[in-house]
Nucleic acid binder design. Structure first.
Lengths: 107, 107
DNA sequence: CTCATGTATTCGGATATGCGGATAGGTGGA
DNA sequence: TCCACCTATCCGCATATCCGAATACATGAG
């Protein structure tokens, strides 16, 4: 894997990093990975206003991280690619190490 | 790996997602992984103002993603954990799939 | 002590982002 | 066609983020 060009970095930032740069969106993606849902159900499950859930879903959908499928009058949202979860889980692992190092530094 | 709590998501966002949410910081981390450097050298290599490089480095350092070591009058910065690169590379892979899907969708 | 060099921070201003109530728009059943 | 329900968007406002020149601060050499 070579060193990425600025073009690739810009694209990566715009599509993925931005998407992941909000705790509620992280929460939404984990929830959708666990179980696809419509906006209302998602908003209720995560205890957030419908407009907030819809806004985030629209954003994630535009970036291609989330997929929408119409089902009657509602729209079922699902995760486009499970590897997004793997990316986030890897970030969790890195985080753990960071926190650990930080505690050691207090000695 | 269990579903993360909001606390963990907030921490993850604050420490890692935020750090990664800027193309120049992505660039900086790849550069430091390839070769630790001082601020001036880094700024020159990446063709950005010294103040910009320093500001980003300070930010990454506070989050623990980057490590600083004094060497005389200069400060050598390096990547704290190579797995950060792995996270970014995984994002690149996901990105490729997204872009591919997007092209197919144009048929 | 003074200078040269490298680093960190300040500053004003532009831009981006998030929020959530209110509202408009779409969909299917009766 | 009317209604109930679900979804998307609008709006005003608050906050966060980034920039880069200028400036302050730190370090080591002479």
């Amino acid at each position: 894997m070579t060193i990425p060009s600025m073009d690739e970095l810009n694209l990566m930032h715009d599509r993925i990093c931005r998407s992941v740069n909000d705790p509620k969106r992280l929460q939404i993606m984990y929830a959708l990975d666990e179980q696809p849902r419509n906006v209302t159900a998602l908003a209720q499950a995560l205890d957030m206003p419908q407009s907030t859930a819809s806004r985030h879903l629209t954003m994630l959908r535009q970036r291609g991280l989330v997929v929408a499928e119409r089902d009657g009058s509602s729209v079922i949202y699902g995760l486009a690619d499970h590897r997004i979860i793997e990316v986030m889980n890897m970030m969790r692992n890195v985080l753990r190490e960071l926190v650990e190092k930080q505690s050691n530094a207090m000695d």
